[in-house]
Structures are given as C-alpha cells and as structure tokens.
Design a protein around this nucleic acid. Structure first.
Length: 222
DNA sequence: GTACAGATAAACT
DNA sequence: GTTTATCTGTACA
C-alpha cells in the first residue's frame, strides 16, 4: 500500500470526505506502525462556512488551511485536545476534512499507552474507546501541535486507500454553534468505532446531491 | 445506560 | 479578556 497522492486531496472537500471513509491512517515510527481505519469525518469548506476556522480569514493559525492539499492541519481545542485535519482543494481555497474517528487496526499497545498517559486514573481502555473521537485519535497517534503542517503524502504520517464498509450516511456536524444546517459529517452507520455523538443522530442516506466547486449552492437540509 | 461540570492553552479581539 | 471542530470522572437511573 502507498500513501494517497496530493491529487486525491486537491478536490472538492465533500468528495474527499466521503472517499476518506474506509481509508487507513498510518503512523510509521521506529517503534512500529500504527494503523486505523477512518470511519467518521467532517468537512469544513471555505471562508463562507461559518464553522470553518477560515471564516475568520487568513491568520497565523489558519495559514495551513490556505496551503497545499494533503497537508495536516492540527490545532489545540479547549486547551486540552488536538484535532487532525487533512487540507483539501487548491492552495488559496481554505478547506479541510476533520478526521473524527478510526477503527484500530495495528499498534494497539502504542495507542493504549499514549491514551493512558494523558488520563488521570489508570482504568482500562477498550479497543472501541482508543480512537472514537478526534481528541482520542490524536492522543492514540501521539499527534500534537508540533505535527501541524506535516505532509500526509510523505512517509511518517500518511493515508492509504480503502473502501467503506456497509452503509455510509451524512449528518449535521457536532460541537459547533454555527453552520449546523450543513450535513457535512460522514460516517459508517454500523461501525462501533464512531464517536459517541454519532449515535442516535438524524442522518440522511447516500446518494446526496453535491454541487462540485460551488459551496454557495450546496443544499441545506432542514 | 445518560447527564453534567470542569479542565486548560493557544489564537485572536 | 473571550472563545474553542472535546474528553473524562462523577453522579444518578
């Protein structure tokens, strides 16, 4: 297997989001390889998307969003957790896919150790809870602000092609107070490895209309 | 099983 | 000084 090329990421964000479902996030370290199947993502697209960090325009923080597709945009949220995004579309078109949950495939011990290291009590962490959320995922893969700007088409952290399993559905994005009209979260409906907030959600099935290249005309579902 | 409060730091106003 | 694309422990059913 080889890393997805830059051309994969340099497309419409909703298309990239959908096709990332089933792909494998790969961390290659001297200690071993850590792998997880992506089962849940969210799209954040353009300065016109009020929930996208680029809605505030180009700043030092949002600079990666305006850069090359295939770059990792990692930021700290609530002062505690990190979130991993893959930058999409062409340079100057700020957008990204937030990787929200993966199904652990390899490197269980490293994931468990890194997750446990950031918790107060040493209670056991089940496989389902290793990476079923954006913050947990970054903990499990050891990703921090120092990894912001990593090139996902290179060796250390990459994504390999894969296919979704079962039904794939879309819902509103979570954890935000604006832009909630957009059904831009995509996940495997039957996967036990999606985040808790993906359960019992109003969803719509595929196929859904996608207007390539025009976020203004993107359908809002009420 | 669900519900809630609190943690904590970087970026921005 | 305010905001934030979350997780965890504790409480209760």
């Amino acid at each position: 297997m080889s890393a997805l090329p830059r051309s994969f990421f340099g497309r419409d964000t909703l298309v990239v989001a959908r096709e990332l479902i089933g792909c494998t996030l790969v961390l290659d370290e001297p200690a071993g390889v850590t792998r997880g199947r992506i089962v849940e993502v969210e799209a954040y697209q353009g300065e016109d998307d009020p929930a996208c960090h680029a809605a505030a325009g180009l700043t030092r923080r949002t600079e990666p969003l305006y850069g090359m597709p295939g770059i990792a945009y990692i930021y700290l949220i609530y002062g505690v957790h990190h979130c991993l995004n893959a930058v999409t579309r062409a340079p100057g078109e700020p957008s990204a896919v937030l990787i929200r949950a993966v199904e652990p495939v390899a490197g269980f011990d490293r994931m468990r150790a890194r997750r446990a290291a950031r918790r107060r009590s040493p209670s056991a962490i089940g496989d389902r809870d290793l990476a079923n959320g954006p913050g947990k995922l970054c903990d499990a893969f050891g990703l921090t602000l120092t990894d912001n700007g990593l090139d996902l088409t290179k060796e250390r952290l990459s994504i390999e092609l894969g296919a979704a399993q079962g039904e794939v559905v879309w819902s509103r994005r979570v954890g935000i107070n604006v832009g909630t009209d957009r059904f831009w979260r995509c996940f495997e409906r039957e996967s036990p490895y999606v985040s808790r907030s993906a359960l019992n959600r109003e969803v719509e099935a595929e196929p859904r209309p996608i207007t390539i290249g025009s976020i203004e005309t993107e359908r809002a579902v009420s």
